[in-house]
């Protein structure tokens, strides 16, 4: 029993959680504004899109791959669908998500074909797809930014779960869109831990050949993963468009680094086979706190990128030192 508690207190999630608590306390002491409830609302908003992407990236990495094409897919499908809606006067949230999602699935199918069928390295294949999708968006769809989102869709950005007024009289509102990543987290948890398919994802990430011998259809599972990843990328892109009330062909480009970082800091092993939904949530939270509150503690903006990089290096370093110690320890 005691060893169980000790084990629980030194898991990867626990370490990330300690870091989050320590960091929050430090920021709270330096800047009292952080201690207000409004921080929860601003952080949720900041984490919203990253969480959606992190869920997909976590599943891909657990399966032994990596996907750097999701920002490009998100931009392409949300931008293309928005333009479709604007030119045909379609005003439906369902249409927005469904059509963009379908495009995402198609890109995912492409990724899956290259990685599962042709056995290309996942990084290079998705980098290629990313370049194709990004180039196609800018070259064939245009570079204009649209802020005239159809009214019915736009309304979603103004629906709130609850609001909170702080001591200074500023009102903070929790957007309803936060439900999307929350639902996705629950679904991902159920999928990964309570279905055969989910166990298969861990299995092929741990050892492809062993998984195949154990009776998993490796190629089918990979196809499933990348198609879901494509779909979720589009969901992220559409949600971002609604949240920001602006359709942009490349606003999300470059976010892949931060998402991969959040996933890895959350304890997902980049070599596949290990990772939890809860850890991913914590990883995203940690990165969001760092990104949003460095200014609060007086770190100038131009240092941010460096500090985030440093945290990622430390995070991955600690994870792999632990993994190395486990590998070297005597196995009984």
């Amino acid at each position: 029993m005691r060893s169980n508690i000790a084990k629980l207190a030194t898991t990867n999630e626990a370490i990330v959680a300690y870091t989050i608590v320590a960091l929050s306390m430090a920021i709270g002491i330096i800047n009292p504004a952080f201690r207000e409830f409004s921080t929860v609302i601003t952080l949720s908003r900041a984490m919203l899109i990253t969480l959606i992407f992190a869920v997909l990236q976590m599943m891909v990495i657990v399966s032994g791959g990596i996907d750097v094409s999701f920002p490009a897919i998100a931009c392409f499908s949300s931008y293309a669908t928005l333009r479709l809606m604007l030119s045909f006067d379609i005003d439906s949230v369902f249409f927005f998500y469904a059509v963009a999602g379908l495009m995402g699935v198609c890109f995912g199918l492409g990724n899956a074909f290259l990685i599962a069928k042709m056995e290309l390295p996942a990084l290079i294949a998705t980098l290629g797809v990313s370049s194709v999708a990004n180039g196609a968006t800018l070259a064939f769809l245009g570079t204009r930014e649209y802020s005239n989102i159809p009214e019915g869709v736009d309304q979603l950005s103004r629906s709130f779960l609850f609001s909170f007024t702080n001591s200074g009289g500023i009102t903070f509102q929790m957007t309803s869109l936060i439900l999307i990543p929350l639902i996705l987290l629950v679904l991902a948890y159920l999928l990964l831990h309570h279905t055969m398919l989910g166990r298969g994802i861990y299995a092929i990430g741990g050892d492809r050949f062993a998984a195949r011998i154990a009776g998993f259809n490796v190629i089918r599972i990979q196809f499933f993963i990348y198609m879901v990843a494509g779909f979720l990328a589009s969901v992220g892109g559409v949600t971002f468009t609604i949240l920001m009330r602006q359709g942009s062909p490349q606003n999300l480009m470059g976010s892949e680094m931060m998402v991969i970082a959040a996933v890895v800091v959350g304890g997902t092993r980049i070599t596949g086979g290990h990772g939890t939904v809860f850890g991913t949530l914590l990883g995203v939270l940690l990165i969001a706190i760092v990104q949003n509150n460095l200014i609060m503690v007086g770190v100038p903006t131009h240092f941010q990128s460096f500090v985030v990089g440093l945290i990622i290096v430390l995070g991955t370093g600690i994870t792999s030192i632990r993994a190395k110690r486990v590998a070297n320890s005597s196995k009984v």
Binding site: H302, F303, S305, F306, I312
Partner: peptide, 12 residues
Amino acid sequence: CGLQLYSGLGLA
């Protein structure tokens, strides 16, 4: 990570 770290240092 290095890309982020070195570009970040450059930016700093």
